[in-house]
Design a protein around this nucleic acid. Structure first.
Length: 108
DNA sequence: GATCTGATTGTTATG
DNA sequence: CATAACAATCAGATC
């Protein structure tokens, strides 16, 4: 599929503080496998690169990520999948409100 | 139906 | 406190 032929990230390659949400309650998406991958690897990267700052660790992380095999990404993807379920709940609430909500129970 | 875009997620350190 | 490379994602909008 020609879909992801281009990388939006590579296109903009810049982030001029994009803010402003369109959704009323913004059903935040789930985390990415990288999020979990970093949580576990950030320790190792820093362990072997105590001097590594943001750029170094970031690039190292990405490099390692690609080095990993599909089987190694699996556990991380699994965590991401788990979080997705959580995100699904958020979306459920989002859909609930978005719907014609006559009764607004309460929200914190 | 298929395609695309945008918004989001987390890490680090530093000004 | 926001930002910046790194990667995934995926759900909603659009045609």
């Amino acid at each position: 599929m020609l879909g992801r032929t281009y990388r939006k990230a590579a296109e903009k390659a810049e982030k001029p503080a994009r803010k402003g949400k369109k959704d009323p309650n913004a059903p935040k998406r789930a985390l990415s496998a990288y999020m979990f991958f970093s949580q576990d690897w950030r320790e190792r990267i820093k362990a072997e690169n105590p001097d590594a700052g943001f750029g170094e660790v970031g690039k190292l992380l990405g490099a390692k990520w690609k080095e990993l095999d599909d089987a190694e990404k699996k556990p991380y993807a699994d965590q991401a999948a788990r979080d997705k379920e959580r995100a699904d709940d958020e979306k459920a609430a989002y859909d609930n409100k978005k719907g014609g909500g006559s009764e607004e129970d309460d929200e914190e």
